[in-house]
């Protein structure tokens, strides 16, 4: 067993590369999904029924599609329509498209429970449109959304493991190739599991920090 782990130590650079890719895909993916989700929440909350119907349709569709299936569609399906991405980009696109729906739903949920009065006060002071959303509504939503966005970020980190099937060199992919080379599945996978766990701990700490900021305002 010690020999197994020393083999892994020798392949540390490959695991580290995998980890870096997992972190990059998760962070960039989550940041883009959060920004797009915030934009998508606007039509979800619109008074115009057509806007609401179309945006709701997209959110519900994404929530019913397995992430793996969406990844296949982006990587193998889209080239048929002339849209060809490399593995890494295809993985990122899948993460962003999928999680935009989830982020939008998180934001919509909190938005709809915000105190109406603070929004009405802003309207009375002449806020409207994008400035009302960006300066009064979204900041309040984001302060309340910390734990839920943290949860979703953990979900994203775990979902990046699926991208191994389109050969994105992330952590699961790296672990799999190391265990296949040396036939040491237990040591490799337990190492990868611990690395995923450490990542999630970092997210938890981040959520805690955001909660501290929000606490002062409650």
């Amino acid at each position: 067993m010690m020999r197994d782990f020393s083999l892994i130590w020798q392949s540390a650079d490959r695991l580290l590369d995998g980890l870096i890719n997992t972190v990059l895909l998760s962070l960039v993916g989550a940041a883009l999904a959060l920004a797009l989700g915030a934009l998508l929440a606007i039509p979800l909350m619109a008074s115009n029924p057509v806007l609401r119907l179309v945006s709701r349709g997209f959110v519900d569709l994404m929530r019913c599609v397995p992430f793996l299936m969406l990844t296949y569609l982006v990587y193998y399906g889209l080239p048929r329509l002339g849209l060809r991405f490399d593995n890494w980009t295809a993985g990122l696109v899948a993460i962003v498209v999928y999680n935009t729906a989830y982020m939008a739903e998180i934001i919509r949920g909190i938005w709809s429970r915000l105190e109406r009065e603070t929004i009405e006060a802003a309207v009375a002071f002449g806020f409207h449109g994008w400035r009302l959303v960006s300066r009064i509504i979204l900041p309040q939503v984001m302060l309340a959304a910390g734990p839920m966005i943290g949860n979703q970020l953990i979900q994203i980190i775990k979902d990046t493991a699926f991208l191994t099937i389109i050969a994105v060199p992330e952590l699961t992919h790296a672990a799999n190739s190391i265990q296949a080379q040396y036939f040491i599945p237990f040591a490799t996978f337990i190492t990868a599991v611990l690395m995923y766990w450490a990542l999630c701990m970092v997210v938890e700490v981040g959520v805690y920090a955001v909660e501290r900021i929000a606490e002062r305002r409650r």
């Binding site: 105190e115 009065e117 603070t118 009405e120 006060a121 802003a122 009375a124 002071f125 009064i136 900041p139 309040q140 302060l143 305002r217 409650r218």
Partner: peptide
């Protein structure tokens, strides 16, 4: 051009 003061203050908490 108007300023409104509300019963429940309605300050922006953030």
């Amino acid at each position: 051009r108007m300023g409104t003061v509300f019963q429940h203050f309605n300050l922006w908490p953030h």
